[in-house]
Structure formats: C-alpha cells, structure tokens
Simulated assay, not measured.
Amino acid sequence: MADPATADPSRPTPLAARAPGPDLARGLMLLFIALANTHYFLRGPSVLGGYPRGGSGVDAAVVWFISTFVDGRAFPMFGALFGYGIARIADRQRERGPRAVRRLLWRRGLVLVAVGFAHAVLLYAGDILAAYGVLLLVGAWAVRWRDRWLLAVALLFFVLTALPGGASSTVGTDPPDVAMLPPDVLTMIAARARTSLYVALLGPLGFVCPFLIGVWAGRRRVLEQPELHLTALRVAASAGIGAAVLGAQPIALVLSGVAAAPARPLLESLGSLHDATGTLGGLGYAAALALVAVRLRARTPGPVLLAITAAGQRSMTCYLAQSVVWALVFTPFLLDLSGTLTVAATALLAAGTWLITVVLADRMRRAGHRGPFEVLVRRVTYR
C-alpha cells in the first residue's frame, strides 16, 4: 500500500493509499443503511412508525433483527466515520494553516448540503447528506479543539439525546407522510423541500456525539493503525455492541409483537434508551470492524472483501444509488409497492440493492474509477 504521507497534501488521498479499515466499515454498513431506510415506506397500522402489525413469524423475526442491530445503530457509525475522515483531511492539510483548512472543509460542507437537498427533493426525503454538510459547516471549527473539549461536548450531546423526547428517532406513530410517499411531482417537491430543511437543521444534533468521537479517533489514526489500539478497540467493540443489543430489547420486543406497548411516557423513555445505546453500538461497530481489518491485513484480501471495500470507497455514490431504487419501488406515481411489500420482502429488497451497488462499485474499482459523486465532492473541496 502506498504511504499517505508521501502523497500531495493539496489533493485527495489516492485510492491505493487509503487505509482499508474505514472503507470496509462503510461498505458493510451501507447494507444496514439500506435496511434502516426501506421499512419506513411501509403502510399499515403500527405501534411505532415503519413496522406494520400483523405480519408473519418471519416478518416478526426481521423486525426484531433490524430494531436490535440496525435502527439507530448504523447512522451513528457513519457519523463517527465522517468525523474520522474530517480529522484526517485536516491533519493532511495542516501545513496550509487553520483558515485554509476551514475554508476547504466549508466547501466540502456546502457541496454536501447541495447534493443532499437535491437528493431529498428528488429521491428520498430522509436524506442525511445535507445534515452532515450543516454539521461540517459548524464542526470545521472543532478540528482545532483540544481533546478534552471534543470529549466533553460529545458527552454533553450524548446525554441530551438520551433524554426522553430529546432527540429520539425511534418513537413515532405516524404513517408515511406525503414527503415519503407523494401523490404527484408537485406535491413531492413542495413537501420534501420543507422536510429536507427540517432534517438538515435538526438532524445534526443527533450526530454531534459520534462526529466528535470520530474527530478524536481520527487524530490518533485509530482505524488506520488499529494494531496500536487493540485493547481500546476490544473494549469499545464488546461494550458498545453489548449495550446496543441489550438497550434495544424493550423496543425490539414491542415492535416484533412479543411484548405489548406500554404507556406513552414509558414508551418515550424506552425509545430514548434505544437511541442512546444505538450511539454506543455505532462506535462499537466501527471498533469491531477495525479489529477485523487487523486480521485481514496479514492476508491477501479476496474478491468479496475487495468489492465491499470498493463500495466503502464510493459510499456516497452507493448511498444515492440505493435511493433510486426506493423511489422507483415505493413512489405512488411509479410502482407504489409500499402497501404491498412486507417487512421481510422489503429487507430482501434492501439486501439485493446493496449487493448490486457492491458489484457496481467493484466494477468501478477494476476500471480504476472513483464514484461520480466522490469526484464531484473532491473537485469542489480541493478545487
């Protein structure tokens, strides 16, 4: 592997010089992103939004799996990886001075906002790219914070989002609205424009904690040099994933129909527990995949790992490609299958879509091409 230190710091890191750990994590977690996004399109009576009641035993098992291992767990991991990548960019550009680094990061944030807004209006109302962009516009200052400030503010936002009703994304009883399932194009544009602004402005609050933890870890190159942090990574992986699994059970059992839904105040508290432990789980996933990368480093990666890593290197392109499928399948004036598919069928759709994006990413890798949206972001960021 090429040494990143020898690359031109004024340009993005070549693909051959990138550490495999973060990209492998992104590639695998894109599957979880697909599983997390698709069930919210489903119509039908539900205790909590996105999981219609009365399905088969297979549906109940899928609901339990997604609510235990996916919902509220994959996005924090991406938030941490986003912060990690920003820290590495800032470190690589540090010789240009703090003001130049901030301007570079602001350009990156603005292009994320622009792409995210277009994505939200045209394809998927639940876009997170714009939220990441807004977070970066503010977080560009955080790359120069002292470690204790990074960790203190991360802890503060973790506590705030853990409060009942604070920033819980789990508890919601409303069916898919017109922003998710618009009846026509004009309604789609109007409703999604409003929704995207709301998500872009409030969404960053839920990502501040993992983002700052990612910046802290990026300074230490934890995912690029995991062999130097094995004990910390093992503790983070076991504690984080363990807390996420245990903390998810009250909500997961209600969603899967095993337990009856409690009164609303208790339900909100359980939803906050689900979300708070999900943040820990996202960090645990990142640590676990870094440990996997240590084992894989000693051997030549096979075609499957290379393909998944290629998807991680083109994560924005793959993420946006997923939304093309969701728009085609669920939009009422297209295929309109939101009232037809079951939770299990939607999970299969998500897994199949992820597999297709992995294959396409691998073909781009073999041809020596970056993803088109990665090229766009880098051209704007590095001019």
Rank of each mutant, 00 (worst) to 15 (best):
residue 120 A to K: 02
residue 248 A to K: 03
residue 379 R to I: 06
residue 149 W to T: 15
residue 93 Q to F: 08
residue 272 S to V: 05
residue 212 L to P: 10
residue 276 A to T: 12
residue 147 D to H: 12
residue 341 L to E: 02
residue 192 R to P: 11
residue 141 W to A: 14
residue 216 W to H: 14
residue 119 H to E: 07
residue 382 Y to F: 15
residue 75 F to Q: 00
residue 268 E to P: 06
residue 352 G to E: 04
residue 254 V to R: 00
residue 71 D to I: 09
residue 15 L to A: 13
residue 177 D to K: 13
residue 348 L to I: 05
residue 204 P to I: 07
residue 326 W to P: 07
residue 268 E to F: 04
residue 281 G to S: 11
residue 339 G to A: 07
residue 150 L to T: 12
residue 205 L to W: 00
residue 318 C to N: 12
residue 109 G to R: 01
residue 340 T to W: 03
residue 211 F to L: 04
residue 110 L to K: 00
residue 40 Y to F: 15
residue 118 A to V: 14
residue 19 A to F: 04
residue 47 V to R: 09
residue 292 V to G: 05
residue 71 D to S: 05
residue 79 G to P: 09
residue 287 A to P: 03
residue 115 V to H: 02
residue 79 G to M: 08
residue 6 T to D: 13
residue 147 D to V: 14
residue 296 L to V: 12
residue 65 F to L: 14
residue 41 F to M: 06
residue 280 L to F: 12
residue 352 G to K: 00
residue 81 L to H: 01
residue 142 A to H: 06
residue 314 R to A: 15
residue 361 A to Y: 01
residue 282 G to A: 02
residue 136 L to K: 01
residue 38 T to L: 10
residue 51 Y to G: 00
residue 305 L to P: 02
residue 198 Y to T: 12
residue 381 T to D: 08
residue 67 S to T: 11
residue 17 A to G: 07
residue 200 A to M: 15
residue 137 L to A: 15
residue 25 A to V: 15
residue 298 A to R: 13
residue 324 V to G: 12
residue 238 S to Y: 01
residue 24 L to D: 04
residue 20 P to Q: 01
